[in-house]
Design a binder for these strands. Sequence first.
DNA 1: GACCGACGTCCGATATTTCGGACAAACGGT
DNA 2: ACCGTTTGTCCGAAATATCGGACGTCGGTC
Lengths: 266, 266
Amino acid sequence: MKSGGVAEKPVAEKQPEEKSTGRARGIDRVIALMEHLHDRRAPTRIADIARDTGTPRSTMYELVNTLVEARWLELRDGDGTVYFGPAMHYYGSDYLDSVDLIRKARVEVAHIAELVGETAQFCTLEGDKYLVVLNEPGRRMFRISSEIGIKVPIPWTASGRLLVDHMDAAEIRRFIPAEDFILPDGRHIAEDEFLEDMHRARTQGYVRTTALVDRFTTCLAAPVRDPAGRCIATICFVVPADTTEEAQQVMIDTLKASAERLSPGR
Amino acid sequence: MKSGGVAEKPVAEKQPEEKSTGRARGIDRVIALMEHLHDRRAPTRIADIARDTGTPRSTMYELVNTLVEARWLELRDGDGTVYFGPAMHYYGSDYLDSVDLIRKARVEVAHIAELVGETAQFCTLEGDKYLVVLNEPGRRMFRISSEIGIKVPIPWTASGRLLVDHMDAAEIRRFIPAEDFILPDGRHIAEDEFLEDMHRARTQGYVRTTALVDRFTTCLAAPVRDPAGRCIATICFVVPADTTEEAQQVMIDTLKASAERLSPGR
DNA sequence: GACCGACGTCCGATATTTCGGACAAACGGT
DNA sequence: ACCGTTTGTCCGAAATATCGGACGTCGGTC
């Protein structure tokens, strides 16, 4: 039991004003289920999903069976865990192919990742967060964590400094939540420092950050801009911080060329 | 007793005149909706989806609104069409990352596609059909059609001849529906011809087919085998039929090397 | 300007899906 | 072998999500 009284997060809090009888539509439960799997990023036991999403056990079993049949989910390991199934891949591929910029970006990201052998990514904003849309691992075998679909505070990233560079200081203060300027290790990013990075980036045409979210990692990013000059996405490399300056310069040139090719109506 | 007790799918799921009441669960409607979009491969108007899936219009509007909010779907073009949304990509990426063989195959496919500049694919069986799991377009700009997630009769493909090469003639006759031996243009593939291809492939370690489903296309495929020697997947190139023999030999060697690397416990 | 079809919303009724709880089988620790 | 826990299935009851149909808008056509 939780007699120990440790913070055992019970369930996702609902809006207080929500008049919840506990009963919900199947589709809403399924959405919660999928979001939960995406957050956990690991095959999960059905009973755990039920508990963590606040879904009755019998309902969850029923839904999971339906979804497994549709191949939205897959039973894993022979034990009772489930995770995403192949249908999600098919639908996701359809999505990627249907968005012009992303389709082009796939080619670029794959190309430059192969070319220089380092992890390349294509990123955008979603709401007030930074988001990795495409990730190509590169030859280096460490840090395979695909962060696709995970939202990250804008100030934690190199690309973030480009993605908001059409805003002035006041707009940025309004746009980015204050707590997002605190790094995972507790350090605080000064706002004027952030703005300075941003302006330098605008003139140089790229951003470099080192040891931001990870002490030994450098990020290099170049902006994809719409005809009005607004940064709508970025393409970037994630490399070890001790990468030589010459190598980094090559990567920066590579990024700039790719970003230029991706910029619509250039 | 539980083990293996999954999806005991009754082969005939839809009684032609089932017509229970016409009422269905939201989740079943949603599954039909997504499958329909995947089949159509294009943004579709809500009313059309409703008609084509046999869903009441008001229900479809209700569900689409829910799904758009969850970013499973996206409104397109400003007109009333919807298509898959970014959430599907995130979930699909999670799936790809979670399957060891597929994760490795992504690297191989991307690598060889970049290397030789032609479209490379990674394929498996799903039920009694052939299926493209990964597709990397290559430099050639024609034929962008990603066929990811579309099922194709086994005899229509080069890879198909590898994927069933552990069966004997009788098993194959039982496994592959007779109508699948008829090509899209009406031609009929003789069964002994198919078996011959298959056996030759087993000794040669690859398959080449030309002008099967498409008059001007050649497919080259190599088998990924499990420790027992059974073909569990294939990796292949799709190239113009007039590609020189020398170039094709290079590709075959490339495929064999990749397939070997992918074969578990080799 | 009147007509027509398509689009999207709204609303009440009821067929049905969700839910709670009971149950049996498997598991695992002592 | 015993017992507590976890897993998966089943069932009846009732809360409610689905459905049909009506309604207001919008655009295009004659």
